[in-house]
Amino acid sequence: MGRIEYSAEIADLLGRVRRRPAAGWPWRPGESVPPGLPVKQSWGWLFAPDGRVLTLVNPKDGIVTLPGGSLEPEDAGDPGRALAREAGEEAQAVIGRPHYLGYLYDRIGSANGGHECARVRMTAALRAVGPTAPDPASGRHYRRLLVAPGLAVELLGWGEAGLRQARAAVASAVVRLGVPEAANETIEELPPGGGQVFPPGR
């Protein structure tokens, strides 16, 4: 494997990354959320045409995340709508139609007041990003990086379970979005002014 390319500025940012401990929620790929199990969160693997995915880095604490978050009343229980809204708020991102991948079973229910719940994972095309801005809900001002899915798992600190999830996301994106199975390995920060990422059509 060749050397991963990135700028000195990105090297400084990556040097401050702090990985969260893995939560250990069981991954249920391709399974529908069972009736009666509430869906509390929706997060997305958002793909560029070259197979890289959008990751968000909080420069204040070094935590890396995928775009996504909790379902709100305006989402009307739709995880795809929640993902589109959260991607817009956190990353100023416009996405294509989300495709369901599966869910994580949170038996402890830390996102549901101590009651079990589901945390959905989806994939979608990253169409465009607007000018960078703070998340209106949290005030966090994320740095927006395009990275290969395997590297995203490493930055997220998700281990083997995260790799299984990434493989499911890549398999879906190859079929549905036409991205290459082997992603571009360059780490790139999206420009602060925004711009188009994925051409129209998918």
Rank of each mutant, 00 (worst) to 15 (best):
R85Y: 03
P200W: 03
P200M: 06
A137K: 13
A93G: 12
Q165T: 06
E72N: 09
L155G: 13
G162L: 07
Q92S: 15
T55C: 13
F198H: 13
E185S: 14
R127V: 15
A8G: 08
R97M: 09
L46T: 00
S110P: 00
G88K: 04
W25T: 11
P38A: 03
E90A: 07
P29V: 02
Y100G: 01
L146R: 04
A128V: 04
W25G: 04
E90N: 07
I4G: 02
K40T: 15
D61A: 09
L13V: 15
G157M: 11
A124W: 02
V94P: 01
R164V: 05
D135F: 00
G157E: 09
V179L: 05
Q196S: 11
A84I: 12
A171G: 09
P131C: 07
G114F: 02
L46S: 05
R97C: 00
V64Q: 14
V64P: 12
A173N: 04
R121H: 07
Y100F: 14
N184M: 12
R20Y: 13
L155E: 11
W158G: 03
L13W: 13
R164Y: 02
Y105F: 15
A93N: 07
R107Q: 14
L101C: 04
P59Y: 04
H141T: 14
I95D: 02
S42W: 01
P98M: 04
R3D: 13
V153T: 14
R121N: 06
A161F: 08
V33H: 07
E86S: 14
S70K: 13
I187G: 05
